[in-house]
Amino acid sequence: MMEDQALTVSNLNISYAAFRSKRIRNLFSERTKDVESIHAVKDLSFSLSQGEVLGVVGLNGSGKTTLLRAIAGIFSPDSGTIDLHGNRASLMALGVGFDPELTGRENIILSGMMYGYTGREVREVLDEIISFSELGNFIEYPVRTYSSGMHSRLSFSVTSFLKTDIMLVDEVISVGDAHFKEKSRARMQEMIDDKKHSVVLVSHDEELIRNTCDRVIWLDHGSLKMEGQTGVVLSGYYDFLAGCEGV
């Protein structure tokens, strides 16, 4: 059974404010104490199977993004464990590590290497990335000369072509003009559906979660409120939302 697992999260707890930046003049005063501690994720346990798409729903501030960052290794848990079973997990984010003075081509390599891929791995998909971005000759121009749409197209293309075992998606990204928006949305859908990756998908889009996810967890103030079949959890969640609006 464990062989099928891509990710196991056990009794995960994450708090903020452990590293609240201080001013030296407050060092010896009462204000030094970290009074504002936010317990973002509370005693959370769940697992993800190979090729499974797990949806995460919850109100803003319920700990969804913190959870994704912890799985990506960006946050360290205060207690509990995250076992990736040897898989590589990457958070889908746009334009990480881009240098505006470098060309589009150089930025693809730089960003890819920053994600921990070797130069060879990045160069293997370089042509696909350039072709998908539809930037043509602009790929040899400094990124500072790009329009915001071109910048988004390049950064989306980089993110979507670097292979990872567990995709961590914080809202499905679709960028650029109407044509590229549709293209990027289709690409994201293709990546989620291909069953080669396991996916943890955070979204407020009910239709997307309903059509895409095999299973859903619902977070409320950092705790697991409900876990199970997509339809069942979504019904519970949207009934809860309707109740909130009625109050």
């Binding site: 404010a17 452990a18 590293f19 609240r20 930046s21 290794g73 960006i74 946050f75």
Partner: peptide, 10 residues
């Protein structure tokens, strides 16, 4: 030992 907490800086 501390780098995964740096990101918690607010």
């Amino acid at each position: 030992n501390n780098e995964n907490n740096y990101v918690k800086l607010r």
